[in-house]
Write a protein that binds this DNA or RNA. Structure first.
Lengths: 83, 83
DNA sequence: TGGGAATACATACTATAGGAGATAAACCTC
DNA sequence: GAGGTTTATCTCCTATAGTATGTATTCCCA
């Protein structure tokens, strides 16, 4: 269970949904494009403060981390919009 | 909006609900008692990997971070049990 | 009120989060 | 295949996450 990849994959999906390039997102969030790249590729282990800042820039208000059962083969996680 | 305090307060509540002392929890999780203390007092900024390990030790499978509206005065967050 | 259990504080240390800058590699579209 | 744009890789740097150890403090309760 690799939280880095779990967060990276879902972040990338949401970034694209929002129409951000890595560069545009880096300008909006203050993180470097290189950091965003590493994050999406599962090479970064963001802190909760960083996670909050990323979510805020994405316009996401609800971070929902579903930790898979051991017997579940695939990782699952959602970053869902406010109700 | 201080994610450290938000997580710290909710972690402390859940730890007590589960009947752990900081010392017992540190033995179960591999983190030091001192780290747990700092975490609960909002002086630590855990990474997502750390957050996952803490949740796993607590027997929590669903991490739900609700980011308050700007006009909401109080922090809110839930670490909820699996359905 | 004293003594053990639980929590907080202090200091020093190693590993890594995150930044800055340059560049490489893909990925278009013409 | 040239040229722009987007993403990935690399190196070096500082700040801090997390460990280890010791101790202080707070909280009980007999």
């Amino acid at each position: 269970m690799d939280m880095r990849k779990l967060v990276g994959r879902n972040f990338e999906r949401l970034r694209k949904q929002k129409g951000f390039t890595q560069e545009k997102f880096s300008e909006a969030s203050g993180f470097t494009q290189q950091y965003i790249s590493g994050l999406e590729r599962g090479r970064r282990n963001p802190t909760i403060v960083t996670l909050f800042e990323l979510a805020t820039t994405l316009g996401v208000s609800h971070i929902d981390l579903v930790l898979p059962d051991d017997d579940a083969r695939s990782d699952r996680a959602k970053l869902s919009k406010k109700k």
